[in-house]
């Protein structure tokens, strides 16, 4: 009896992978659909968060204005504030300017993690979204 059940289990796996059918009956086993429930269902959620293009462009404008970047200097999402000549005091001013422009409030710990335009834009989008969510709930 035990050996016959083992035989059934061994023969169970291969046909399912090959045929991919939901209706398989086992005359030897009492619970016909018991093994089907044991199959794990893989679930994958891939979420990619990228800042909106308009936010990046606005951030670039504010950075140029704040740092008095020479005309013709390229400022893009990948630009690092330090590469543009900003020291830590400049970065504080940039973040303050962004707060006013987008009507948000940036935590100090968040502000210190900002190193590029993309960092700032992503954080802004996140905070703006949070703020609108709070407005809807209230």
């Amino acid at each position: 009896m035990a050996s016959s059940l083992a035989g059934s289990a061994l023969s169970f796996a291969t046909p399912v992978k090959a045929v991919k059918t939901n209706s398989i009956s086992f005359t030897s086993a009492r619970k016909g659909n018991a093994f089907l429930r044991l199959q794990p269902v893989p679930m994958r959620f891939a979420v990619c968060c990228a800042a909106k293009k308009e936010t990046v462009e606005k951030v670039c404008d504010i950075v140029k204005k704040q740092l008095a970047v020479p005309e013709g200097t390229e400022v893009s999402g990948a630009s690092k504030f330090s590469d543009l000549g900003a020291d830590s005091l400049d970065t504080v001013e940039i973040v303050m300017g962004l707060e006013e422009e987008f009507h948000i409030s940036v935590e100090e710990s968040s502000a210190q993690s900002i190193a590029t335009v993309e960092d700032a834009a992503a954080l802004i989008d996140k905070l703006v979204e949070q703020k609108s969510a709070e407005a809807k709930s209230s």
């Binding site: 830590s88 005091l89 504080v92 001013e93 303050m96 100090e108 502000a111 210190q112």
Partner: peptide
């Protein structure tokens, strides 16, 4: 350094 920057933010 963080204290200095926090103070600067406070003034602004």
């Amino acid at each position: 350094q963080r204290q200095v920057l926090a103070l600067y933010r406070g003034f602004l």
